[in-house]
C-alpha cells in the first residue's frame, strides 16, 4: 500500500537552542522534529517548552526548498517530539504545543496501545479547549523497545491519529542488547506491520553524521525494506537521504493524477479510488511533483 505521507527526511532540532530553531527550516528537510525529549536536559525542560511555544508562533518555518515559482514560500511540516509518557513532562508538553500550528507529535518509546488511547484523549481535550478541529494533531510513534515492537499491531490500531511509525535504533539496542549490524530483523518487522496498516514507515537516525557513505548504505537498506523516509540529526545528512528516497514511478503517476483531479474539483474534497483526498493531501502530492521536477 502506498502511504500518502511523503517525507523523505525529518531533521531533529533541539528545542533548547534558539539559534538552531531560527535556521532549521532552511536546511531543506521535508519535515522537522522539534525535540523536547533526549536533546533537552531535565533542568531545561520547562524553559525549552516555553521557548518552543513562542518559536512556533513566529514566521520562521518556511522551507527554502518549498519556495514556489511564484516567489512565495510554504511552511514546512512540523512535528514536536514530546517526552515519553512514562515521564512527568509529557502532559505539559501537550498543553504547550497542541494549540500551535504543528502537523503532529513524534511520540517516543511507545509500548502499549492503552497509552496511545490515553494520549489521543489528552490531545482531544486540548484541541477542543483551544478551538482546534478535533483530530488535527497527528501521531508519529516511535518504537524503541522489544515490547513495543511486539505490540505494534495493537498500537497502530489504537488511534485514528496515527499516521506513521519510526524506528528508534539507539534505544532499541539499549533495550535488547542487539548491536547495530543486527537490527535488520526488527526494522523489517516494524515496516511490515506499519505497511499492513497503510502507514508511513520511518527509519532511525544514523548517528555518525560525518560518515555519509555509511548513511547512504543504511538509507538504501531502509528503502529496500519498504521504509518511506529517514530521520536526520545533522543538516549535512539531508541531501544523502533525499538522493536515496526518490519517489517511485507509481507514486509519481498517482501524484500527477491527484493533482489533475484536484484542479478539476477546484478545492472540493474528492474520491481517488476509494481514498478521500482533501487539500493537505493534494498539497503533499503537489510538493512531491515539484521536488521530483527539481531533482
Amino acid at each position: 500500500m502506498i502511504t500518502p505521507y511523503l517525507w523523505r527526511s525529518m531533521l531533529y532540532v533541539p528545542a533548547n537552542r534558539p539559534s538552531r530553531l531560527q535556521k532549521c527550516a532552511r536546511y531543506g528537510a521535508d519535515a522537522l522534529i522539534l525535540d523536547l525529549e533526549d536533546s533537552v536536559p531535565d533542568s531545561e525542560k520547562a524553559e525549552s517548552r516555553l521557548l518552543l511555544k513562542q518559536a512556533l508562533k513566529e514566521p520562521i518555518w518556511d522551507s527554502a526548498e518549498l519556495y514556489g515559482s511564484n516567489g512565495g514560500s510554504e511552511r514546512v511540516d512540523l512535528f514536536v517530539r514530546i517526552n515519553a509518557m512514562r515521564t512527568r513532562y509529557w502532559r505539559e508538553d501537550l498543553e504547550a504545543v497542541i494549540p500551535e500550528e504543528i502537523f503532529g507529535l513524534k511520540v517516543p518509546k511507545v509500548e502499549e496501545p492503552t497509552k496511545v488511547e490515553e494520549l489521543d484523549h489528552a490531545i482531544s481535550r486540548i484541541e477542543k479547549a483551544s478551538g482546534i478541529e478535533e483530530g488535527r494533531t497527528k501521531l508519529l510513534l516511535s518504537i524503541e523497545t522489544a515490547k513495543g515492537l511486539l505490540q505494534l499491531s495493537a498500537i497502530c490500531a489504537a488511534s485514528a491519529r496515527v499516521i506513521g511509525v519510526g524506528f528508534g535504533s539507539e534505544d532499541f539496542m539499549t533495550d535488547t542488547g542487539i548491536d547495530r549490524d543486527n537490527l535488520r530483523y526488527a526494522r523489517m518487522q516494524m515496516t511490515l506491520v506499519v505497511k499492513a496498516f497503510g502507514l508511513y514507515a520511518q527509519d532511525s537516525v544514523y548517528p555518525a553524521f560525518s560518515d555519509l557513505e555509511g548513511l547512504k548504505q543504511e538509507t538504501e537498506e531502509a528503502k529496500r525494506m519498504g521504509m518511506d523516509g529517514k530521520t536526520a540529526i545533522h543538516p549535512n545528512q539531508i541531501e544523502t537521504i533525499h538522493s536515496v528516497f526518490q519517489p517511485s514511478d507509481a507514486l509519481l503517476e498517482k501524484a500527477g493524477e491527484i493533482c489533475r483531479m484536484a484542479e478539476a474539483e477546484n478545492g472540493r474534497v474528492f474520491n481517488y479510488h476509494g481514498e478521500m483526498v482533501d487539500r493537505p493531501i493534494v498539497e503533499r502530492y503537489r510538493r512531491l511533483l515539484q521536488r521530483s521536477r527539481e531533482n
Partner: peptide
C-alpha cells in the same frame, strides 16, 4: 547574544514563572 524577540519573551517568561 543576538536573540530574536520570541526568545527574549520566552526567557523572560521562564524567569518570571
Amino acid at each position: 547574544s543576538g536573540a530574536w524577540d520570541y526568545t527574549i519573551k520566552a526567557r523572560f517568561e521562564s524567569c518570571l514563572r
